[in-house]
Amino acid sequence: MHKYNRGVTIVEILISILIIAIVMVFLYRLFIQVRNEEEGNAIQSQFVIAQSQIEQAVEEDLVDYGVKSIKACNIYNVDIDDNSIYNEPGTNDLDNYKCLEITYNTPSNIVDNTGYIMIYKYYTRYDNKTLQGKDPKWIVRYTKGHFDVDVSGNRTKWNSQTQVTNELPDELDLSEIPYVTYSRTPNTLKMNDTLKIVLPIKDSVGLHYDINLTIDINHDNEFTCTSTENSSNLYYRLKCNCTGDSNLCSSSIDKK
């Protein structure tokens, strides 16, 4: 008599389900790990692209015109619509906003001699009924142009010649203050002086994606750095570091 071995016993079913469940847990962990890696890559790319594009835009102007002065600024005094700037009570984002004003050594026939590099949060959209801003995002922006001035000398309207804007990831650390490092050597030495502007940007794990701008300073051109490192407003702080001749350094730093 033949013994028929058809079908599956309950023990086999239980064991196979158990093995499949163990394998599925392991696979799920792997899947989450791969997805997190991809998200990390995307954030890193976003930082690098924003950093590179802003650096390229500003360096073009620095190389074309040279720099005359650098100081911190208040983003509410630049050309931005104040209602678009994110400023919720109870948050300290405003303290971390950054604004640098660069005045270029443009010839007299070129009026667009001022550039602003800004990092702030802005509303990407508005509620049609309540006109409340929504979806705030971090943004880094460079704009170059000039202000129209009325008869009293007050700035009226900003005329932008160049504008570059990039969104930054939400995982942002802007706790470090911007700084300018430059050299000032006497005319008798053969070398030009150099200048470096640093706008520190870090991600949530502390990796730096600073905006670094370098340019040489001709001995014939005056340069002033307005130091506000002790300002009571955190967003208004800028540190100026000068190396070289002490007299030339002290005359080039304007401390406020």
Partner: peptide, 15 residues
């Protein structure tokens, strides 16, 4: 090679 290093290296060469 970061973008800023390209400009810095050009300045070093000039100096």
């Amino acid at each position: 090679v970061h973008t800023d290093n390209i400009y810095s290296t050009y300045l070093v060469k000039k100096q």
